[in-house]
Write a protein that binds this DNA or RNA. Structure first.
Lengths: 221, 221
DNA sequence: AATTGTGAATTGATTCACAGCT
DNA sequence: AGCTGTGAATCAATTCACAATT
């Protein structure tokens, strides 16, 4: 009996020495979407779902959904579909949603303070545990400690923080980013409208609001 | 003499009837990045730039930059590079940055009010001209009118609004989206963590903060 | 000599088509 | 019969390599 959860390439690779194909980055994004849909299904007490139905909900083609999932093992049952709870659990594990990640936020301006107040993360397994700013003021209005930049290194080390949200003005973004990286941050969600230079081993996702608007603007005729 | 600003495929197409290759969507995103870099160069009184230098600043390969630009014509001068101001102007035109677009924002919660206060758009040619909410309160704290949902249709029509930013809770996102589309909105920047269903001719860009964090989380080991 | 513009080659992602389970 | 898993085929994007131009 073959381990049902092992992807088929495993067998081949043990023999051939080939590397397992690593999932394309876009597939990882889609995993998050699937996860959201599965959570909704679970809330509605659905317990099996076909690739066609789940794909519809996620706004993709069913073959793409199956390919995406296949990177992580044999997760469905032919003729029946996928078990909602098992799949949800599995994707959560892959995305690291299950170990609650501490996240710090740097730059408490307009956008920064909105994100501090925005609750949407906790549910997904993230928690902003502290915020930093050059001149921390109005600390009282947040539920997390608002600290001066001086305390950054210490806090990251003591709390084993690996992720940061960067919401400082463009002009300071690179230098603050360097500081984060120097102290061990491995992943940055960047809202400053700048291209950040980082070492290979640090991941950056940028959300640039002006770029998104400009992009839309191109498509309206 | 051949028009220097016409892409080479034009000639062929007049003969062959082939469609011009339409730029990939990602190229349009990169155009915005290039534009930012060009603005910075202009501010520093630089007036020519090579594809290598500009690409470096934008974080892409120089060949990619050239391919991206080639979709829009012959913009550089061999041996010399690109004229900063001319290129900036051209990209601004392509992205529609030059006609100032009115944008409305729907859903004035945490994130919505932060975006209203966030000035970063105006500089890029966009202006949030009004905000809508089911229960508009604290209207005084914003510089734009905060209106009840009832006034939506009328406002869109009277002001010829084509773009909207959607920052309502996930549960309401689809229905509000439908309403926007019904009244003529053609492009939506969606911050609600949902997959929106829209007709073909409406463009949606989604920014899902939880998805971005989850994605980072996958990459930290 | 420097640097763009662009076909050709390559790499990557998506979709098809169907074999293989349940 | 229904639905997944996956190799092969297609489609799209990126990079290479070099001719063309200043």
């Amino acid at each position: 009996m073959i381990d049902k959860t092992a992807p088929a390439w495993l067998d081949r690779d043990l023999v051939s020495g080939t590397k397992p194909p690593s999932p394309p980055r876009k597939a990882i994004y889609r995993l998050s979407i699937y996860l959201r849909c599965l959570q909704k299904l679970r809330d509605n007490r659905v317990d099996m779902v076909s690739s066609a139905a789940l794909a519809k909900a996620a706004g993709v083609k069913s073959t793409q959904l199956r390919k995406d999932l296949a990177y992580f093992g044999q997760l469905g049952t032919r003729g029946l579909g996928y078990n909602v709870e098992a799949l949800r659990k599995m994707i959560g594990d892959v995305l690291g949603q299950n170990r609650l990640q501490p996240v710090i936020l740097v730059g408490v301006g307009n956008l920064g303070s909105a994100l501090l107040r925005y609750g949407g993360f906790r549910k997904e397994g993230f928690e902003i545990t502290a915020a930093f700013d050059l001149l921390p003021k109005a600390a009282g209005q947040f539920t997390v400690p608002l600290l001066p930049m001086g305390g950054l290194a210490d806090y990251i080390l003591k709390n084993n923080v690996k992720m940061a949200i960067l919401t400082v003005p463009a002009i300071n973004a690179q230098s603050v980013c360097n500081e984060l990286v120097a102290h061990g941050i491995q992943a940055i969600l960047n809202f400053s409208p700048t291209v950040l230079e980082t070492p290979e081993n640090v991941v950056v996702n940028s959300v640039d609001l002006a770029v998104e608007l400009e992009n839309l603007s191109y498509f309206i005729r």
